[in-house]
Write a protein that binds this DNA or RNA. Structure first.
Length: 563
RNA sequence: CGGGGCGUGGCGCAGCCUGGUUAGCGCGCGUGCUUUGGGAGCACGAGGUCCCCGGUUCGAAUCCGGGCGCCCCGACCA
C-alpha cells in the first residue's frame, strides 16, 4: 500500500519545538519517526523502510565475507555478565532487573557475553575456526543523556558481529575482512565517511577503528589531513612551532604576583602562551602523585594520558601536591623530587617559563633536557593547524556510524571459550567485535544531504525510488495516466510512493521534497498537453522531462543514474 | 550528576508577571461550494483533565509547595 491517500505519513510544516539537530527536525517533519519518551523512538512506515534499506546493505556485505546471521536475546541472565566482569564494571548504563523468581537479569547493551558463551560450548577444535557470527538486535542502554532525535537513544538496533580465531594473526584476517566490508557498506549507503584510528577504551583491546560520518550534529571530533584520519581522542600531530625566548645558562626566577593563569604569566612576560610549561598534577591509582607537563597553549588529553599511563588517574587536589611540589598556580618541574614527571613531546625547546614552586614567582630559561628528569610522552590534544607529514589538520564534528575492534581474549578467557590445537593444546579463542548503527546511518544521510526543502536520500537508502505526484482529480485523463504509470513503474521493480491525495500541487510538491525520494514524477494536465512528464531530481532539485511514450522505462533509466 | 529552559486541542504559540465572563491565535482536521503546476478562498463545525498532586483564595492556566515529564549545555558514553 503505497498510495499516499492511505499511507501513514504524518508530515508537519513545523519542526518540534525542542528539536535542535537537523536530522531530528526533518525525520519528524517528514513523518518518519515519532518520539515515545526520552531516547525512545518509533519508526513510522516510511522511516522504517529507510532503516531496513540500511540493514539490508549491511546484511549483504557481511554475508559476502562469510558471516552467519543469527539472533540472540536482549534479556540476559546476570550470571553471564558477572562472569565477564561487566556486571560490576559498568555503571548505571546497564539496565538491571529481576525476573518473577527474583533472579538477577540484565538487558543486553551488546552481545559479547552471549555469543562467547555459545562459542565456548560449541567450538572444541581449531578445525571449527575461524568463525564469524552476527545479528541485528535491539540494544538497551540507560544513556545519561539521550539526544538529537535518533542519534543517541536508549534503545536502538545494532548490527553486531563477532569473529573467532585461533590467534592474533587470525584475528587480523577477520578484522581486515570487516574493514573491507565496512568500507563497501558505507560507500553503498552513499555517505561521506572516514575510517579513523580510535581509542580502545575500557574494553582493553589491541586495536580499533571507528567509521565517522562528518556532519554538524556529530558528537565526536575527528582530526583530518590528507592521508590521515583519527578521532581527536587519540590523534597525534606535529605541533605548530612557537617562538621561545633566548636560552639562559640556568633558570632565572622572576616575580609574577597573582599570575596564576597561563594567560596572565604570558602577558606579564611578554611571550606567547606556547613559551610556557603548563603543569598538571595527577594521582595515578590510589595515591601516586605525578606531574604532567604540556605546552602552555596545549591541553592535556585525558584519554591519551590514560593510555600512556596504562592506569586510571584523576587530577590531584591542591592539598595533595602543595607540600611536595608547590602552591597551585605556581607549580613547575624544577627542583621537584620524588614526583615522576611526564613531559609532552611538544615541549622540545630549551627555554620555557615554568612555575617556581613558590607563590608569586616563575622561572624563565627552563630547559627540560638540562633542568629536570622526565619521561617523554604524547598526551596533548591536537588542534587545528597542527601538521601530519607536513599537511595541516582540520578538526570536524562527526557521527560515529560504526566501529571495528580487536578484542583479543578479553571475553574468551572469563567465559571459557577455548579450542584444542593440532597438538591437543588448549588455547583461548581470539575475538573481534564489530558494530554498526543503522539508525545513525539514516540520521547521517539526512544531515549530510538535506537542503532547505527537506531530506535528499541517497538512492540506496530512500524509502521509495520514485515519488509520483498525481495532480488530476479522480475521473480525469491525468488521473488515469498517473494510475497507469504507477502500475508500470512497479512492474519494473521500482518502489513507488504515489501521491493520489486530493489537494493542491504546492502541498504535494512540498511533501515530496520533504520526504526526499531521489526522483519525483508529476502528472497533470500539462503532461498530456505537452506529451512529456516532468521529472525532478531531488539532489539539486533539477527538473528534466521524460517523453510520455515509454515514460516508465525512461524514468527507470534516469533513476539508475542518480546518486 | 551539575547548570539552564520548557510543559496550554494533532503541530507551533499567546494568555501567567498584575487571579475574575464561555481559555485565544496560526497551521492541521470534518462538511459544503469555489479553486487545481509551488503549502488556495469562503462559510459552517469538531476537538482542551491548561503535566500531576496538594495548598492559598469567594474564585487558580495564572500565586505557593511538592512531584513527574521533556529539551539544551556540560560531565558521562561498554
Amino acid at each position: 500500500m503505497t498510495r499516499l491517500s492511505q499511507y501513514f505519513l504524518p508530515t508537519e510544516k513545523q519542526p518540534p519545538a525542542d528539536a535542535e539537530a537537523l536530522s531530528h527536525k526533518l525525520l519528524v517533519r517528514a513523518g518518519m519517526i515519532r518520539q515515545v519518551g526520552a531516547g525512545l523512538w518509533s519508526w513510522l512506515p516510511a522511516g522504517w523502510r529507510v532503516h531496513q534499506k540500511a540493514v539490508q546493505i549491511v546484511r549483504e556485505e557481511l554475508d559476502a565475507i562469510g558471516a552467519q546471521e543469527m539472533l540472540m536475546p536482549v534479556l540476559n541472565p546476570a550470571e553471564l555478565w558477572q562472569k565477564s566482569g561487566r556486571y560490576d564494571a559498568i555503571g548505571g548504563e546497564l539496565f538491571r532487573l529481576k525476573d518473577r523468581r527474583g533472579a538477577d537479569m540484565v538487558l543486553a547493551m551488546t552481545h559479547e557475553e552471549v555469543v562467547t558463551s555459545h562459542v565456548a560450548q560449541v567450538v572444541r577444535s581449531y578445525r571449527d575456526l575461524p568463525l564469524i557470527l552476527y545479528h541485528f538486535q535491539t540494544k538497551e542502554r540507560d544513556e545519561p543523556r539521550p539526544r538529537a532525535g535518533v542519534l543517541r537513544t536508549r534503545e536502538f538496533i545494532m548490527k553486531d558481529s563477532y569473529t573467532f580465531d585461533r590467534d592474533a594473526a587470525g584475528l587480523d584476517v577477520g578484522y581486515d575482512k570487516h574493514r573491507e566490508a565496512y568500507d563497501r557498506i558505507f560507500d553503498r549507503c552513499g555517505l561521506e565517511w572516514y575510517r579513523v584510528d580510535s581509542d580502545v577504551g575500557m574494553m582493553g583491546g589491541t586495536g580499533a577503528h571507528e567509521y565517522m560520518a562528518p556532519c554538524p550534529a556529530g558528537e565526536n571530533d575527528v582530526a583530518l589531513a590528507p592521508g590521515y584520519a583519527a578521532n581527536v581522542e587519540v590523534a597525534s600531530a606535529t605541533p605548530q612551532p612557537v617562538e621561545l625566548p633566548e636560552a639562559l645558562d640556568a633558570p632565572e626566577e622572576f616575580s609574577t604576583p597573582g599570575a596564576t593563569t597561563i594567560e596572565a604569566v604570558a602577558t606579564l612576560a611578554g611571550v606567547p602562551a606556547g613559551a610556557l610549561i603548563k603543569a598538571y598534577p595527577i594521582i595515578v591509582g590510589e595515591d601516586e602523585l605525578r606531574l604532567v607537563l604540556v605546552r602552555g597553549d596545549h591541553k592535556v588529553n585525558d584519554i591519551k594520558l590514560g593510555n600512556a599511563l596504562g592506569a586510571s588517574f584523576r587530577p590531584a587536589h591542591e592539598a595533595e601536591f602543595e607540600d611536595r611540589i608547590g602552591p597551585a598556580g605556581f607549580i613547575g618541574p624544577v627542583g621537584v623530587s620524588g614526583v615522576p614527571i611526564l613531559l609532552d613531546a611538544a615541549l622540545d625547546g630549551h627555554s620555557y617559563i615554568a612555575g617556581a614552586n613558590k607563590a608569586d614567582a616563575h622561572l624563565r630559561g627552563v630547559d627540560p633536557a638540562r633542568d629536570f628528569e622526565f619521561t617523554q610522552v604524547d598526551v596533548r590534544s591536537v588542534v587545528a593547524g597542527d601538521t601530519v607529514d607536513g599537511h595541516e589538520i582540520r578538526i570536524e564534528p562527526a557521527i560515529e556510524i560504526g566501529n571495528i575492534f580487536k578484542l583479543g581474549t578479553r571475553y574468551s578467557v572469563p567465559l571459557g571459550a577455548t579450542y584444542l590445537d593440532e597438538d591437543g593444546q588448549s588455547h583461548p579463542i581470539w575475538m573481534g567485535s564489530y558494530g554498526i548503527g543503522p539508525a545513525r546511518i539514516c540520521a547521517a544521510a539526512v544531515e549530510q544531504f538535506a537542503d532547505e526543502k527537506g531530506i535528499s536520500w541517497p538512492r540506496s537508502l530512500a524509502p521509495f525510488d520514485i515519488h509520483l505526484v498525481g495532480l488530476g482529480k479522480p475521473g480525469t485523463d491525468e488521473a488515469a495516466l498517473a494510475d497507469k504509470l504507477y502500475d508500470e513503474l512497479r512492474a519494473l521493480g521500482l518502489d513507488v510512493i504515489y501521491d493520489d491525495r486530493e489537494g493542491g500541487p504546492g502541498a504535494k510538491f512540498a511533501d515530496a521534497e520533504l520526504l526526499g525520494c531521489p526522483l519525483r514524477l508529476t502528472i497533470g494536465k500539462r503532461t498530456i498537453e505537452a506529451g512529456e512528464i516532468e521529472a525532478q531530481v531531488r539532489r539539486g532539485r533539477e527538473t528534466r522531462s521524460v517523453p510520455l511514450e515509454g515514460a516508465a522505462e525512461a524514468a527507470h533509466e534516469l533513476w539508475k543514474t542518480l546518486p
